[in-house]
Amino acid sequence: MPTTDPRPDGERAKSEVLSQRILIRDLTLSCSIGVSEEERARRQRLRINIELTVDYPPPSRDNINEVVNYGSLAKAVRNHCLDTTFRLLETLAEELSEVCFGFDPVSETRVRIEKLDRYADIGGIGVEIARRRSDR
C-alpha cells in the first residue's frame, strides 16, 4: 500500500532537543593496571566505553567549532590511559570522567571499563560510573 506523508513537501516535523550525547564505544587499549605489582608489570587489555551528555544546541552551520571535537576527545582519553599506571579500575574511571569534563560543554559522563583477559571464563569484568558536573 502506498503511504502518504501528511507534511507538505520539505516541511520538517516540529521537535525540541532533549539531550545530545557523544559516544566512544569499545576503545581497546593495553594498560598498566592492577592491585599487585605482578598485575601492573604486564599490560592488560581494557575495553572502554564512554557516554557524554553535552550542553549546547545542535550545530547551526554544520561547523566543527560548534561541537566537541571527537578526535581530540578520543586522543585525551587514550593518552591518559597509556601514560599513567593505575591500581584500580574505579580510579581510572573517575580520572577519565575528569578528562571528559575538561571539554566545557560536557555536563554528564558515564564511563565503563572492563578488563578483557583477567578471567578465562569471563568476557569482561569491570566497573561503570556516572557523574554530573556540579560547578554550574
Rank of each mutant, 00 (worst) to 15 (best):
L73A: 04
R7T: 05
A120P: 07
I33E: 03
S30F: 07
G123K: 11
P105G: 01
R136H: 13
P2S: 09
P6D: 08
D26P: 00
R118E: 13
G124V: 10
V99W: 01
R7V: 00
E38G: 14
K75S: 12
L92R: 02
E94F: 09
D83S: 13
C81D: 10
S72W: 02
D62S: 13
L88V: 09
P2A: 06
L29S: 07
Y56V: 03
R132E: 11
T91Q: 11
I48D: 05
P58L: 15
L46K: 01
A74T: 12
T85S: 12
I122P: 02
G71L: 12
C100W: 08
Q44C: 10
E128K: 09
L96E: 04
E90L: 04
P6M: 08
S15C: 15
P8S: 11
R61L: 12
E94L: 11
R110Y: 03
D83I: 02
N79D: 15
A74L: 13
M1S: 12
Y70P: 06
S36T: 14
R40W: 00
E128Q: 15
S15R: 15
E108P: 01
A13S: 13
S134Y: 07
R40E: 03
L89E: 08
R47P: 01
R61K: 12
E108L: 04
K75P: 00
T109Y: 02
D55R: 13
R40F: 02
K115I: 09
E128W: 06
A120Q: 14
D104S: 14
R87Y: 06
E11T: 15
E37R: 07
A120E: 15
V68C: 04
A13G: 10
L82P: 08
R40L: 01
E37T: 08
E16M: 04
E51Y: 02
V68R: 08
I50H: 05
D26E: 15
I50L: 14
T3G: 02
T28E: 15
R47V: 09
R7E: 07
E108V: 01
C81T: 06
I129H: 04
L96T: 03
I64G: 00
N69C: 14
T28V: 13
D5T: 09
I22A: 09
N63L: 10
G123V: 08
E114V: 03
D9H: 12
A41V: 01
R40Q: 05
P2I: 00
I50R: 02
R87T: 09
E90Y: 11
G123M: 08
F103P: 06
E11P: 04
T28L: 02
R47F: 04
M1N: 06
E51K: 11
F86R: 00
D55W: 04
P59H: 11
T4C: 05
T53A: 12
